[in-house]
């Protein structure tokens, strides 16, 4: 079970968190201006890398804040956590 470092509460069990999928997929500024294909890309397409992946988590059973984490999908190690709106940090 992951030990996830909430940026506010510190490390907590994975069971306290909700997963939110890939981070930095912004809601389009004007969805009405998008083609069906562009909208479908936003709706349905996500990356699935082996290795470092920026993803969203919510500390649902704790402070209830959303944040981003860079997790290595191969090793499950979390290299960084940061708050929404902050740029993805450079991780080794």
């Amino acid at each position: 079970m992951l030990l996830i470092p909430c940026p506010w509460c510190g490390p907590r069990d994975e069971t306290e968190f909700h997963y939110g999928g890939q981070a930095h997929v912004a809601y389009p500024a004007d969805p009405g201006a998008l083609t069906d294909e562009e909208w479908a890309r936003y709706l349905f397409f996500r990356d699935n890398p082996e290795g470092a992946f920026a993803e969203r988590w919510s500390h649902a059973a704790g402070c209830r804040r959303w944040f981003n984490a860079v997790r290595d999908t191969a090793t499950n190690r979390i290299h960084a956590v940061y708050r929404p709106g902050e740029p993805r940090p450079v991780t080794g």
Binding site: H18, G20, R56, A60, R65, W66, P84
Partner: peptide, 13 residues
């Protein structure tokens, strides 16, 4: 409630 918080925190802060 989660849905509302998610939009407020991540898209419309």
């Amino acid at each position: 409630l989660d849905w509302m918080e998610e939009w407020l925190q991540t898209e419309w802060p």
